[in-house]
Structure formats: structure tokens, C-alpha cells
Design a binder for these strands. Sequence first.
RNA 1: GGAGAGAUGUCAGAGUGGUCGAAUGAGCCGGUCUUGAAAACCGGUGUACUCGUAAGGGUACCGGGGGUUCGAAUCCCUCUCUCUCCGCCA
Length: 423
Amino acid sequence: MLTLKVITENTDEVVRKLARKGFDAKEVIGKIIELDKIRKSTQAELDANLAETNAISKSVGALMKEGKKAEAEEAKSKVASIKEKSKELDAKMSDAIEKINSLLYTIPNMPYDDVPDGKTAEDNVVVKMGNEIPQLGEDALPHWEIAKKYNLIDFELGVKISGAGFPVYIGKGARLQRALINFFLDEARNAGYTEIMPPTVVNQASGFGTGQLPDKEGQMYHCEVDDLYLIPTAEVPVTNIYRDVILDEKDLPIKNCAYTQCFRREAGSYGKDVRGLNRLHEFSKIEIVRIDTPEHSKESHKEMLAHVESLVKKLELPYRILHLCGGDMSFTAATCYDFEVYSAAQKRWLEVSSVSNFDTYQANRLKCRYKGADKKTQLCHTLNGSAMALPRIVAALLENNQTEKGVRVPKVLVPYMGCEYID
RNA sequence: GGAGAGAUGUCAGAGUGGUCGAAUGAGCCGGUCUUGAAAACCGGUGUACUCGUAAGGGUACCGGGGGUUCGAAUCCCUCUCUCUCCGCCA
């Protein structure tokens, strides 16, 4: 969430920037400022009351020691009325703070100035394209047909044992999963990321820390008995490592990567979007996460983009990079680039990665701070990106590389697959 | 699942009703000493809110929440978590 400080001190700027995200902040910020004034004055009054209570309590102790019982009793009686007032003030202040926070949660992050204007996905800007789109014949098969032809993925079997959106990978289909996971992790490690293997279920505090809760409660699987959530992305456990942590500036940037299974309820999705591997309830993803200083985070973001680009390049997949416009960006991002690969039989672009900088928005929720050489404690910047999500990569690989001999394995994956063709 | 023990600052660890934001030790930072280093010695070393130009004040925080009391790290209730033993088990 945005900090109270930035909202109260730069109100006009905040309103202007949020407008680019299609969010009218004027009213809610007005309310927040009002509530904050109440909070401040209430706190001043409460603090004074408590100070008086403390002073009297101290004097009672002293009087008792001196044996001045009557005076001690008198002091005691004085406290009663002050205490009652304190209780009242305390309630008033908690109420104000609670209201302020619940309003703060409704405000999205401010987009950076270089984020393109726009309202919908139509307005996203293609900043780069790479690798040739293959020309397939009329008889080209979509990936779900290929998966069936070579017995790589059994969607019906998944329905039997779990439900729709939980495919079963078989034989070379399963091996391809493992090959991609290893490839992505090796690439990340070579780029200086520390490999993390986190839990795939998290508690409420973690879901809250990265912003999945309370807003997107319905998107996560919830184990009610234990009140734990299945993670929708490794971002949740890996970023929460740094919840309530004060880092040392010399340890920044922190660069972590993690492979996990990801679980998404995807309530409300339907049609061609959920066909085959296009949208699943469970899938494998390698995530890269960075924690950085405000001064260096833009540079970090660039490095992450270059890393993800190198992956699609090596996999020989036609790709394009989109700079998301203000209106299409996620609630929490300050700037975000999407990577899409072309799935030649479906004839459509599939999103395989988004790489975001959250500025201090997430760190403020997480209370993730660092201490610099100047001994000052301030909020970190957090960034993350997929590097990458498997299913759509697999979809594009199967479709784009289909030949009469089988599906050609990209050179870079051959050592991981142990074969040149999937047949 | 059963029984017991515990949760204190960066860490270890004291504190069982008043001057405790918290002993002591370690670590870390600064200094003295030293050719340099080590040792020794001296000083400093939490977070948040708030008042103040500043110096410096005030308030809160000893796992979370509530209660008793003039006053709670300390007493009571409750929740959570951790550890040990037993059982079960990949």
C-alpha cells in the first residue's frame, strides 16, 4: 500500500498519477487526510493522558515508601477519571487507524511516469519482438492434439483424479516439465540468483504481505481446517521471507529464484482461454524475486527483463515484450512488462511472464526495510517476474516445433531432455 | 493424537508488581593503546508514532489479544507458535 506520508504530503501528485491507472483517488484521499488529522490530535491527547497517569503512578510509589498513605490514596483516586478518558481516546484512535488502513488498501500503486497511457490491453505498447514466427501447414495441430498424439499429457485423466485444469504429464511430456524446470533454474543461478525451495502453502499473514489477501481471497485455494492457502505463485513465500525484516544495504540487491507448483482457482474463466494448457489450476513456475534500494531498482528491473528475454531467445520461441499501460497494470505494480510467446497453431500470443517493479508498495505492507550507510531505515523496493511459467511455454514449443518426425526439441533443451525429438 | 516445558533486544541469557526500554555476556560501530593486528580499556549500539528549526521531550512495544492494579516483562484469562518425551509415519 501507499504510505500515509506520500498521500498526505503529495496529494495532488498522487491523485494525478492514480488517474492514469483509471482510479479516482480524490475522495478517498480526502477521507484519509481527515481521519489522519483526527488520529494525530487524538494521539496527542492520549499521550498526554498516559504521561500524567505514569507520573502519578510513580509518585504513588514514592509516597508509599515514605509512608504518606493518605496522599497516596488521593493520588490513586485522581487516576480513575484520567484512565476512563484514556480508554475513550484509545478507542477513538484505534478506530481512526483501522479506517485509514482499510481505505489505504483500496488505493492501487502509482504508475511510473514512463508507463504508457491507456485503459485496456489494447493500449499496451509492444516494445520489442524477436525470433521468427514459424509458417505451419494447414494441418498443423494445436498443442492438446499433439499432446494426445504422442501421449504427453492426459487431460481427461487429470479430470478423473482431481478435476479440470489439473493435467497429468506422462513420459516425455513429464520429462519435458523436468527439463524446463532445470533449465530455468540453471539459467537463473548462472545469472546470480539464489535458489530457494519454499513451502507451497502459506498462512494468512503471508497472503496479506504480498497483497493476495484480502482482495483476491477467492483466487486462492484455502485449506480451512488449518487456515492455510495454496500459493498462486512463489512470489508469496519468497517475498515474505523479508516480511518484518530490516536488511543491511550492503546485502542488496537480494536476488532469489524459486521453482514451485502454483495453484489458482481461476474462478470465472471459460472458453478457449482454458483449452489445453492455456489456463490451469495447477502449474509449474520459476519465479525470480529481487529486493533492492530505491536508487537501484530500475536497473534491477532492466536486468530481470534481459534475463527473461534471454530465456525465450534460447528456447527459439517467437516473442514480444509489452509495456503495460496504466489501465491494464496490476493493482500493486508501478511498472510492468509482459512477455508473450506466439503459439503458431492456435495463432495467438500467450502471456508467459510479467516482470514488475512494485516500488515501495509491497514493502510497505511487508514492512521490508533496509538500513543504509547513513543509518536511516527506509522501505525497500520489491520486484518479481516469472522466469518462467511452464504450461504456455510447452504449448508454444509443441505447436511451433511440430514436424513429421515429431516435436523438435530446441537445442538448449536437448541435454536436459536426452533426445532431439519428442515422438 | 497424549504428556510436559517455554516464548524477553542482533544473538545468548537475567529479571517474578514500582526509578525496567529492560542486568550481564557476545556481536557490531567509534576511540585509546600498537610498526600492523590481536588482546585490554573507554564510549555507542532497537522499532513505530508524536511535539520541536534544533538540542531535546512525550507515548507505545519483553509472542498476539483481553483482564486485575494507582502502577505489569513480572499476576490472571485466552489464542498462537516453538521445544522435549511418547504414539503414528514419508
